[in-house]
Design a protein around this nucleic acid. Structure first.
Lengths: 251, 251
DNA sequence: CGAGCGTTTGATCGGTGTCAAGGATCGTGG
DNA sequence: CCACGATCCTTGACACCGATCAAACGCTCG
């Protein structure tokens, strides 16, 4: 069922779970041996729709997905972006009724894990349970920061902040470097993350570019002046609750 | 230590924890017997400040508290309001480093519980642990709704939505009725919940009042037309994840 | 090489912010 | 019980950030 010689499809999960300290060999093996089914999701495809009653959580093995809500006038608000290693659906599956949509940003490889298996391992192995609980608390911390971002910052600050967050999370996930990374999002996605229109996102990004804070080519972002970007974005990394060694040279 | 005849100071905790089904007598007794120290917090006093390393969670026994962040230009964004029965500080104390402030809105009676005791009961009694985990997930769900509220709705819709949320949560907590309740917040607080200015909150509330949707006298809100308020606020109760019997006659 | 999607640009509009000042209400202390 | 002071609410005029509308451009991928 699980061959310890070859990397398990669930291996990306360990990185996030070892936030609060490393797991014992037994805990790690138990995580990697969780029952699951692998699936590839096409770009734009929905993983969960608001109103669904999902019975599985999913681990994102590669690619990007985002959570969003649609409001009355048709507007879309993105409330989270997830990348390889993230547990994407504890929120909806444990609560029973999905209160938001989860959609693929790029092609994504996921592993669906039955909710009961998650629940079981959480309480049979407290170190794993604690790690998963903390993971949901970190998600909550990022939600709070996003509330402040869209509620009380202007367009330029919002975007600079978002770029800083992506920089650190991508670097921690081994998907880029904080001062040079590829963002698989259109300006419309950025607009829906920040509560702006795509037109204004465009103008604002060009402003950051013209001022020498960042450079952009297609989807890749180069941070020319990290300290300035962080200052413009009112960004401090505390709310991400990363370990020292994950923060690397930044901050 | 704990006299089952008289109500324990921790009794308000049970209401929230029994969301996912009732707890056994043993679980209930264990919750009520958690070590704790009682304290009264004056209005405006801080319970946790950003940057603190809190070692205790606290149960809110009476009164109201709010979570907020201060951004670079001095603006304040409130990201949650808590009322009697809520566990206020799982987020900060379990994560270690506080990423936001928690402040008293009114005089509040709280019970501080050591973080280790929370952690211990969560894993010794899976039903309690599950209930606490779900509680943090519901908090997260509300955060997501607030992101959408400040990010993609106009002033009138934001405020109507907020009033609907308070209506249901206050009623569920036994602190009012959904169509007639007292709100212990100033218009400045409402502004900081919705990412608006107090002046615009004032104009918008007057508008809702003039249009016969609500009536206001000092801090009390009467909902004259619940269906209309919910429609104006783009409000559906799903994201609150309340039990059927808590939703009462609404929806 | 062509089609489609995403980006860029300009002109104008409107919702919300800002500034300033007056008015109501509540809690406090005499 | 009344007077007072502080806080909160209310109102108006004006400014501005970001939205909206419209159209052209350019890059990618098939």
């Amino acid at each position: 069922m699980f061959d310890p010689q070859s990397p398990s499809p669930l291996a990306p999960m360990l990185r996030k779970l070892e936030y609060s300290g490393s797991l014992s060999d037994g805990d790690q093996a138990a995580v990697l041996a969780l029952p699951h089914s692998l699936k590839t999701i096409e770009p734009q495809a929905y993983i969960v729709r608001e109103g669904d009653r999902p019975t599985h959580s999913c681990l994102l093995r590669s690619g990007f997905v985002y959570r969003h809500k649609i409001v009355a006038d048709g507007g879309r608000q993105i409330c989270a972006i997830h990348m390889a290693g993230d547990m994407v659906d504890l929120q909806n599956s444990l609560l029973g009724l999905a209160d938001h949509n989860v959609q693929a940003l790029t092609r994504a490889e996921v592993a669906f894990i039955p909710r009961e298996a998650i629940h079981q391992i959480a309480f049979e192995r407290p170190a794993v349970g604690t790690a998963m609980w903390l993971d949901t608390l970190v998600d909550g911390s990022i939600f709070r920061e996003w509330i402040a971002n869209v509620g009380r910052r202007n367009a330029r600050t919002r975007l600079a902040h978002l770029l800083c967050e992506f920089a650190l999370r991508l670097e921690a996930a081994g998907l880029g470097r904080h001062n040079d990374y590829t963002l698989p999002m259109t300006q419309e996605h950025l607009a829906d993350c920040t509560g702006l229109t795509p037109i204004h996102v465009n103008r604002t990004l060009r402003g950051l570019d013209a001022d020498g804070v960042i450079s952009r080519t297609h989807r890749s972002v180069t941070v020319d002046d990290w300290k300035r970007l962080a200052a413009e974005g009112d960004f401090t990394s505390g709310y991400l609750h990363m370990r020292e060694d994950q923060l690397g040279l930044v901050q």
